[in-house]
Design a protein around this nucleic acid. Structure first.
Lengths: 148, 148
DNA sequence: GCAAATTAGTTCGTGTACGAACAAAAATAT
DNA sequence: ATATTTTTGTTCGTACACGAACTAATTTGC
């Protein structure tokens, strides 16, 4: 039984940019990236961390599949994997069973980077959410997941 | 009286990427951008819309000030303004009182683009939030603003 | 068994996003 | 008034992010 802003206030609602979900989401993500950057310096970007963390979670997988797991399209994930390979954190080998596929996996250095980054990754999440109380944090995460 | 995950479950909490605020924020913002793109085609990006909407809200202002109003650093806002100028939606003129400043303002075409985009911008916000009930939408916006 | 559709990966072009280094102009501090 | 600091805007380099167009390999539909 939702009512439009117009029905409630009796005239066309003003468009206030700072009230729009997209604008607010961009700023929240920017703040998280900033906090992440303060903790990781130029070691790893949030995106690179996502790739490493997911590989650590699921083990070796194809490049495109990894992209789907971390919500990146094929062109984007290629760049991320290339940069991680150049740093020696990840390696990729052609699949034996499917000659289209590249099997991407963590190197020993990649596993070490994950272990050494773990506490900071937790901290970045905690700092991002720190303006909220614990129950508010839980509510926010639950609602955000439903619009993602 | 927050307790750590460790205190609650008796062992080190697993790092699950899909539970991390940064990862979830990125996906939510991506979905909003996608919906925006479906409504605006290659007319305007969310970022370009933000610049136009803010200029419409506050009137002409300096390039850097506009950047602060829409949460973009000086280098980013320059690119956005340049592209909007190339499309004739925005113009910039040196300030008479401060020779460092560029006064950025909407052209007639820019005001028209704002008027014609307004309904779609509202729709993009509504569609992004559509998985949630009205009261949940309000809660989400309120919590998000506090971490932004 | 083979043609058609799908999937994996690459490349190109465009558009954010931001740090760093820089020049010009303005504000300030003494 | 002049020296210092701050602010404004630019350029460069790096890193996402994605659509479109492409090749190669696999799956499917019949």
């Amino acid at each position: 039984m939702q009512q439009s802003a117009r029905a409630i206030c009796g005239r066309r609602a003003a468009y206030v940019l700072d009230e729009q979900i997209g604008f607010i989401l961009r700023q929240a993500y920017q703040r998280n990236s900033l906090l992440f950057g303060e903790l990781f310096g130029d070691e790893l970007t949030p995106t690179q961390w996502a790739a490493i963390a997911k590989l650590s979670e699921v083990g070796p997988c194809s490049q495109n599949h990894l992209g789907r797991l971390i919500a990146m399209d094929a062109a984007t994930v290629k760049g991320v994997v290339d940069r991680l390979m150049k740093r020696g954190l990840v390696e990729s080998a052609p699949s034996a069973t499917d000659r289209r596929r590249l099997l991407v996996s963590l190197t020993a250095g990649g596993r070490k980077a994950f272990d050494q980054g773990l506490a900071r990754a937790f901290e970045a999440s905690a700092k991002t959410l720190s303006p909220l109380k614990a129950n508010e944090q839980a509510v926010l995460l639950r609602l955000l997941k439903r619009i993602g």
